[in-house]
Design a protein around this nucleic acid. Sequence first.
DNA 1: ATAAACTTTCAATAATTTCTGAAAGTTTAA
DNA 2: TTAAACTTTCAGAAATTATTGAAAGTTTAT
Lengths: 167, 167
Amino acid sequence: MQYQEAKEKFISTWGSLGTLWGINKAMAQIQALLFISTEPLSMEDIMEELKISRGNTSTNLRQLIDWGIVSKKLITGERKEYFTTEKDVQELARHIAKERSRREIQPVIKVLNEISSIKDDNTTKTKELIKQTKALHDLAETADTMLHKIVNQEQNWITKSLLKLIK
Amino acid sequence: MQYQEAKEKFISTWGSLGTLWGINKAMAQIQALLFISTEPLSMEDIMEELKISRGNTSTNLRQLIDWGIVSKKLITGERKEYFTTEKDVQELARHIAKERSRREIQPVIKVLNEISSIKDDNTTKTKELIKQTKALHDLAETADTMLHKIVNQEQNWITKSLLKLIK
DNA sequence: ATAAACTTTCAATAATTTCTGAAAGTTTAA
DNA sequence: TTAAACTTTCAGAAATTATTGAAAGTTTAT
């Protein structure tokens, strides 16, 4: 496998994985492209490389910036904007975990908490609803907390000791 | 908030969360419904409750069964089939993690491994591709392994000690 | 101020995914 | 067997989501 083929395979695989996990394909592919690029890319570069429109590129770059994993890079003497992504996988994972938690998990935990706090009228079905949503709430909270702790540590002390402990 | 409202809120929240994470809404809602139901439900029950068609119900039940989180329950004297979901959140999480890993993460790890193993032709861009896909590969493998270990333990010894260690 | 260079926005369209409903298939009871 | 009770399948319809492209907006240089 040569460079070009490998590159295309990486970008397309990343796009598919994104789709599977509820992330827009173009967004995932732009990030993938930047991730393996040796220097910042302009909008033109990205459009050209991924064969997508200007509008699509602009919209998805903005989203990636909102997610905190892509940033604008001003190149002196150049009029147009250039973009780079976080190159460190650890940092990348941290950002993504943090954002998905904030946008998607936290609100669900809140709802589960509300639901599991309804007044128990002593019917079987109400008891079951309370019991099950409470269990889900606790699981979600534990998982979310663990994820944060693991992913936030500046690697190497806690993660390594964790891994040792688990393996 | 009364029972009915709480139930609807739970089902609809679960459906939305599913959608956000690449899981079909009907599939997530059927699972949610079974999860808080005190007894097994028939296809009719589910169609009625969620206001979805027979075809949709049948297809998504089959998917849930394929995922290993719903099972058929034969009730003696009854002609039709009844369904239940795994009621234990820990087991539920285990199944889902296992399946998503097997179907989605493992194949990506394999691809990343292939890509990061291409011949280094000593150009900057090839070096970068190899370096970055290798980093991603290692991260994915570590995360996947950790997830499995955590989720597979029959709770309470390792997870609790882990939590203590992390918190 | 003007115009060139560039980016964003958004209505229209395309692509994809989900859902329906009825026909075909299967199982069970008599 | 036959027929009723039930489930699956799948072509077409509906709903949702992604994408385009051009007009509007912004910035910079002169």
